[in-house]
Every structure is written in structure tokens, then in C-alpha cells.
Design a binder for these strands. Structure first.
Lengths: 340, 340
DNA sequence: CTGAAAGCGCTTACAG
DNA sequence: CTGAAAGCGCTTACAG
């Protein structure tokens, strides 16, 4: 039904081997033949069958990308970085999301054999590491992103969430805030745990006299909204709220808005991630910028070439403090950045 | 290097045919054998080689998705819809972006043969239709999204941008606005042209005494910002600005903010798409909601099953007017919706 | 420089 | 119910 290499060979009056060599630009084909083959292939609209090619050449020019999710600003940015490098290197992307379902994650990982030359995997769950390790196809190069896989030799790039959270806390304390509440992320999430750890350690390091004040959350906007509502209802409110990610900060901001609480005048509010929306809200959100696209791009590079891997300076990405209006210096503001 | 079906066959003391049948759940395998094969396969951590399987079975369980871009709120939503249906149907997604480069688009399309069972394609360029038609692998089912491909039998789902723009204009006019400027999208973009056409036709239909007022744009936030700056500098400004998409509206809003122009008090501002950010900006943006995820999901369903295709009520998606604060009734506000 | 042939790892009629 | 064999459409040593 479809035109194959045989059809081209017949029409060009050469062997399939020659067609293959001609079309793949091998040097050992005389130019005249090459041109004829190309012309016939074009005329017949021949398109090589990728599965057949992969099977014999053992290359797919495809990278598998297995993520918890495909949408939302975080993953959108991650995919942007991955996609950019993929295009530079002529790689296709086979993407798969598993939505927290480890069964699906395992199935996706297993299904990658014979489809891809390498794998980019993000699995931020703390309790699923054994499962993950079992499902990764051996003999396929793998680069992990923000994934905690103890006792594994795999390369793993990660955001330095701990340092980031420490920096944010230092900023809040320097701004003069004292009672700082933290809206935590999911308990079994690696990033969330590190951010929480940063919050805690910052308190004991910078202000040991201050108490911890932790509200639960799940990284979703709704949970931020809920936490915001709880805070609004409190007799004594914190000076500042540090949400473990921007989406929760946004939800919290919305709750504050509904309750007529002024940010930052009454309560400062900060997030983490610097999603594009962060600078559009009112007031613009102080946050830790995580270069997510960079993380994805770098992971792709490390997967694709040994040089990038040898560099070894790629493992950790320290987020950058982005001060906007929401963090409200109680003491005079010292800097201002990024308003575009 | 990798364990193949032969290894499993040998270890289970059956033929490869039986292994294949056992693992694929064919009924004609006696249970005891099936269990043994499964046990051996598990123990050896056998993973079928997808390319080999595809080559012989002529199925890939993969859908190719070729889009102008992979990131940003629009594509993120589109992918969400596609991904959801993909997961329901056990399909993998091979994604490819071509960033407006038709050469790349052609290459991506051609490379799909043997990798996918069907194709979802978005190509909103008006001038590239011939190119597109030439690159589509014949004999592969294709569903187009927001793509203008004249003289083609292919199914094409589309947002009814024209009707949407008309509705928005009617809203603005009903709000009492008279001088309504339009920030257009790219000239060779299908959606952009339809939205512009809606703007124009609405003017002549609802308010033939009003003049057209069109500023150029390219759907990017920057171009909206630039247009906003121009408007700010005008001696006589419009009552309302209708940006052909939300990103431009956001850029415009930002410019107005910089110039101290109050929205909606001094100028009303509306967009198109209802990206998530639209309701977070200040003031929240009146816009036309396009159910982008629905478009993607439906396209996937139509591609995957004949029933959905037979339904035939899927072709056109009419956007929904979402009134928020930015469109500023000059006459008293009549309704208010969606504030979450 | 070119062709015949083996082989990539599966699935699937075809026999039995 | 099971196996031997052909075949999917390529690529790649191996000869010549």
C-alpha cells in the first residue's frame, strides 16, 4: 500500500542497498546514481519506514520523555527547553505523562524500548524509587530530572530547592518579617520536601527565636487558596507567607483578595518557581526563579552527548531571588528587579 | 545485549510464536504455558522491542502531533487535551514542533511514517498549504486543527474565530464603546485573519458609522506592548482595544500600566483565548474562551475512532464570551461571570 | 561503486 | 494448543 525502498529500487533500476546508501548520503555512491535515486524517490514520494530503519540500524533518533504531567507552566517550560535542544540535534520526542500513577509510569518506561535512544525522566515522588528503578529499561541511557533515586548510578539534574528556600527566607527576614508561615507542597514530593527543609533550616540559622508555622498544601492553586482562607480567618496572622510554589501563592493571593487583605501591606506573600504569571498578578509576586527550560535543555544535552556529561557542572541549578512588590519590605526596599 | 523474545522462548522452552501469543494475551495458549512464559519474561525483565513489533504488526500505538510550538499556554492546553485522550486509549504521543519553519514541518511530517498510526497537525499558516499537502504521508489518517487546507478531504477541526470576534465586538459596542481599535495577529495566520474579519464585519453589521482602527501585531506579548505604547501616545485614544489574542492584550495592558492609563476607566481592553493568566491580571481580562483542550481531545477522538468522526458535530468550536472587569461597561454592567 | 544476502525482533497465517 | 517459517522494510558487512 505504501511505497517502500523496493519500489524505489525497481524504478531506479538499482538494488535496495544502493537506494539506502544513496538516500542516506553515503559517499560510496556515484553521483549520477545518487541523483537518479533521489529523483525517483521524490517522484514516488518515498518516505522511509522509521520502524524498519530503527530495527536494522538500532537508532531511532528519538528521545523518550516521561513526566508526571505535560501541561501547566512548569512542564510547558520544561518541554520548551527539551524541545529546543531536540531540534538542534534532530531528535524527535516521544512524550508520556503518568499523572502520578506509578503503574502507568512503569508501563510507559517499559514501552520505550525500541522506540527511543535515550530517556529523560522526572519522577518527583519520594516513595516510588524502587518502582522507578525496576521499570527503567537497562541498556538505555537515562537522565533524571528532579528525581531522587538513591543507590543509582544515573545522572540526575536537579533544582537546588533547599538553597533557594533558604535564600527566600533570608530575604523575608531581611525585609523585617518575623512570623513567617509556610504553605508546604505534597509530602511525598522531592522538591516540596527540600523547600520545606530550606524553610526550616533558614529559621534555625537566621532566626532561631522564631517559630515554625507550616500549613499543608499540594502545589495546586486550590490548596493555596484554602491555606489563604485559613490565614485570613486567624486572629493573629503571620507577617509573611511563603508558598512552596507560585501556583499556591496565586491561590493564596486570590483568597487574600477575597478577604480584603492587602498584599503586601498587611501580609507579604512570596512563591517559588517564577512561572510567567508571577509577574502579572497584582501585586507582582516575589519568587525564586527556577530556569526550568534550562534544566530540560541541559538534561537533553547531557543525555545526547558525552561532552556535556563530562562537564559535571550541570547537576545543580540554584534558583535566583526575584524581588517584586509582594514581599513588602518592612524595612526600606533595597533592590528591585525584573519588571518586564 | 538486550533480552529478546528468543531468550524468553529458550528459557521457557517454547517457540517464539508461543511467547508472542502468551504475552499478547491471545486466547490460544494453555494457561500453564502462559503463566510460565510470563514468569520467565518477568524474571528476565523482557521488554518487547517496539520497532520490531511495529514492523510486523503494522501498528505503533502512537499518534504523531505536529504543532507550530510546544510551549506557551495555548499549546500546553492543546497538549493537555490530546494527552488525556491518548492516555484513555493507551496511545503514545510523538510530538514535534517546527516553529514556523515549513522545511522542518515537512521533515517532521515525513519522518512520521512507521512511527505513528495517525497524525494530528496544526499549521495555521495561510500560505503554506501546498507545502503541507505535499508533506503529509498519504495512507496515514490525519486530523487537522485550526488549519486551512483547501481542496483537501481531510477532517479539520477549528475554532470559530470569526463568530467569536463578532461576539466580542457586539459586547464592546453594547458596553457603549465607540472607537474600538483592534490589535491584529500575524497576517498569514489563519486564526488571526478570521478574528480580524470578525472585527470588521461586526463593525459594518452593528455599527456601520464607526471606523476601522487596526494596529499590527504578531500574537506575541511584545507586539501587544508596542501597540499599547502607540495608543498611549495618541492624542485621541480609542474607547476600547480589542487584541486578537490574550498575550497581546497582556502586553498592551502592561504598556497602559506603564503610561498610567487606567483600564477600564480610560480605555477598555479585551483579548481572545482565555488563557489561564487572563483572570489573574489586574484588572481581570474580558476575553473569548476557547476550549483549547477540548479541541485537542476531540481531534484525537476523531482520529482514533470512526464513531467520533461520524458524529460530524465536532468540526467547529464556538468560543464563549467571558466578561471580566477589563471591558468596562460605559453603560451599566449587565452581567458578570467567572471570577474563580 | 554496486549487489546479494543476512539480520534486526517481532507477528501471524499456515500446518499439524 | 503449538511450532516452523515467512515476512514486515530497512541497513550493513561481505564480496566482487
Amino acid at each position: 500500500m505504501n511505497v517502500t525502498i523496493k519500489d524505489v529500487a525497481r524504478a531506479a533500476k538499482v538494488s535496495v542497498a544502493t537506494v539506502s546508501r544513496a538516500l542516506n548520503g553515503h559517499s560510496n555512491v556515484v553521483e549520477e546514481v545518487r541523483a537518479r535515486v533521489q529523483a525517483v524517490a521524490d517522484e514516488l514520494r518515498y518516505m522511509p519506514h522509521a520502524a524498519a530503519r530503527s530495527l536494522s540500524s538500532r537508532r531511532t533518533n528519538t528521545v523518550g520523555v516521561v513526566l508526571p504531567d505535560l501541561h501547566g507552566e512548569f512542564f510547558s517550560e520544561l518541554i520548551r527547553g527539551i524541545d529546543q535542544v531536540a531540534r538542534e540535534r534532530g531528535q524527535y520526542l516521544l512524550v508520556s505523562s503518568y499523572h502520578g500513577n506509578l503503574q502507568e509510569q512503569g508501563a510507559a518506561l517499559r514501552a520505550m524500548r525500541g522506540r527511543v535512544d535515550g530517556l529523560l525522566v522526572m519522577s518527583p515522588y519520594l516513595n516510588a524509587t524502587g518502582f522507578l528503578a525496576d521499570s527503567l529499561p537497562q541498556s538505555l541511557p537515562v537522565v533524571l530530572m528532579n528525581t531522587h533515586l538513591p543507590s543509582s548510578e544515573l545522572v540526575s539534574l536537579r533544582i537546588d530547592n533547599y538553597t533557594g528556600a533558604m535564600q527566600m527566607m533570608r530575604h523575608l527576614i531581611e525585609c523585617g518579617h518575623r512570623n513567617i508561615a509556610f504553605i508546604a507542597g505534597p509530602e511525598d514530593n522531592f522538591d516540596a520536601r527540600e523547600r520545606l527543609r530550606g524553610y526550616r533550616d533558614a529559621l534555625s540559622a537566621y532566626a532561631p527565636y522564631l517559630a515554625e508555622w507550616i500549613l499543608p498544601g499540594n502545589f495546586g492553586e486550590d490548596s493555596g487558596h484554602e491555606a489563604g482562607g485559613q490565614i485570613a480567618a486567624m486572629a493573629k496572622r503571620p507577617d509573611a507567607v511563603f508558598a512552596a510554589n507560585d501556583m499556591m501563592a496565586l491561590g493564596c493571593l486570590y483568597a487574600f483578595d477575597q478577604h480584603g487583605i492587602q498584599v503586601p501591606e498587611q501580609i507579604a506573600l512570596v512563591g517559588f518557581d517564577d512561572i510567567p504569571m508571577a509577574r502579572y498578578v497584582h501585586p507582582p509576586l516575589t519568587t525564586m526563579r527556577v530556569d526550568i527550560a534550562e534544566l530540560g535543555g541541559k538534561a537533553m544535552r547531557v543525555l545526547l552527548d558525552a561532552d556535556a556529561k563530562a562537564a559535571s557542572d550541570y547537576v545543580s541549578f540554584v534558583p535566583k531571588l526575584i524581588i517584586r512588590a509582594s514581599s513588602a519590605a518592612k524595612i526600606p526596599r533595597r533592590q528591585r528587579s525584573d519588571s518586564s
